[in-house]
Design a protein around this nucleic acid. Structure first.
Length: 291
DNA sequence: CTTACGGCCTGGGTGC
DNA sequence: TGCACCCAGGCCGTAA
C-alpha cells in the first residue's frame, strides 16, 4: 500500500511522536518478515531513537546505543502492501495482525501491524549502509531533469515497469506511476527508449507534481493506509485514473480503462494516453495449459 | 546484463 | 449462506 507520499507522511508523524524516546524492549508475534529477530531483540533495548528518516519506501530509525560504547545502528522498516506502524499506549487494545511491539520509555509502544506480512524489518550496521543505499535509484523528488532523462534513454522496458523499479527510482508505486503517466499523457506500455525528450520532461514534471500534491494531502488511503497518528490521507479523493475504470477521464471524458502492464493493474485514458504505435517486442507466447 | 512472470500472504468484493 | 475466483498500495527469485 504505502508509496513515497504515505511513507513520508508516516515518517513525519513518527518524528514528532518518538524521536528522543528510548526503546526498553521488543516483542514479536510472527517473524517471517523480520531479518534476525533474535539479534534485533537483543540489540535494540536501551538504545535511543535519534531520528526517523525515509529512504525510498523504507522508514529507518537511527538508533544510538545505550552507553557510550557500541556503534549507532539503523533499523529499517518496509511496510510492504499492508504495513502500519503506530505508537499506542501500552495496554490499549491490540489490532489483529500486530506482530512487533517496540516498548518505549514513556508508557507507549510502537506497534507494527501487517495483514499480509509483505513488509520487512532489518538492522543495518553503519558498515553496510553504503551497499544498502546503492541498491536503490535516486529519489524522484530530488533528481534533476537531465538525470531523469538519462534513466529512460537506453531502456527497452515499458515506461511503467521502469517507474516501478526501485533500482531506477526509489519510492514510486502503482498509484503514483499511473497518476504521473496520465498527467504526462503517456501510455503505461510505451517503450521508454521510444519516448521523445519532451515526453520525458513532461513525465519528470508530472512525477514531481503528483508526489508533492500527495504529500501535501498526507497520502492516499485506499483500504488500510493510516499514518503514524492512525489517520487516513486524502489524496485518494484526487486520483484521476487510479481505480477509475469505467469512469470518465477528467480531461476528455473518454472512459478510463484498466489493463495489466508490468504485472500490475494499470489505469489510463485510451484517448489522452495513446498506445505504442507498433509493438517491436516479440509476439506474446501462448501460455500452455497448466499441468 | 535486461526483462517477464509466478509466488509470497490475508482479506474484501463479486457473481453464481 | 456458501463457495470459487479475482483483486489489492510491493518485491523477490527464477527463467529466458
Amino acid at each position: 500500500m504505502p508509496e513515497l507520499p504515505e511513507v513520508e507522511t508516516i515518517v513525519r508523524g513518527l518524528r514528532a511522536a518518538v524521536v528522543g524516546r528510548r526503546i526498553l524492549g521488543v516483542r514479536f508475534g510472527k517473524t517471517d518478515f523480520v531479518a534476525e529477530p533474535a539479534v534485533i531483540a537483543e540489540r535494540l533495548p536501551g538504545s535511543r531513537i535519534a531520528s526517523v528518516e525515509r529512504y525510498g519506501k523504507f522508514i529507518f530509525l537511527v538508533l544510538e546505543p545505550a552507553a557510550s560504547e557500541g556503534a549507532r545502528c539503523y533499523f529499517f522498516i518496509h511496510l510492504g502492501m499492508t504495513g502500519q506502524i503506530i505508537p499506542r499506549t501500552s495496554g490499549s487494545p491490540i489490532a489483529p495482525h500486530t506482530h512487533v511491539f517496540f516498548e518505549l520509555d514513556d508508557g507507549r509502544e510502537l506497534r507494527y501491524t501487517d495483514i499480509r506480512r509483505f513488509g520487512q524489518m532489518m538492522l543495518v550496521p553503519e558498515s553496510a549502509m553504503e551497499a544498502f543505499r546503492t541498491k536503490l535509484g535516486p529519489d524522484p523528488l530530488e533528481i534533476t531533469e537531465t538525470d531523469f532523462l538519462a534513466l529512460f534513454r537506453a531502456r527497452t522496458a515499458r515506461v511503467k515497469a521502469l517507474l516501478l523499479d526501485q533500482s531506477v527510482l526509489r519510492g514510486m508505486g502503482n498509484i503514483y506511476a499511473d497518476e504521473s503517466l496520465w498527467r504526462a499523457r503517456l501510455h503505461p506500455a510505451r517503450i521508454a527508449a521510444n519516448l521523445k525528450s519532451a515526453q520525458l520532461v513532461a513525465l519528470h514534471r508530472a512525477v514531481r507534481k503528483v508526489l508533492e500534491d500527495a504529500i501535501r494531502l498526507r497520502g492516499s488511503s485506499i483500504s488500510d493506509f493510516l499514518d503514524a497518528e492512525g489517520q487516513p490521507g486524502e489524496y485518494q479523493l484526487h486520483h484521476r485514473v487510479y481505480d477509475h475504470a469505467g469512469k470518465p477521464c477528467p480531461r476528455c471524458k473518454t472512459t478510463i480503462r484498466r489493463i495489466v502492464v508490468a504485472g500490475r493493474g494499470s489505469y489510463f485514458c485510451p484517448r489522452c494516453q495513446a498506445p505504442p504505435r507498433k509493438t517491436s517486442r516479440p509476439p506474446h507466447k501462448r501460455r500452455s495449459a497448466p499441468k
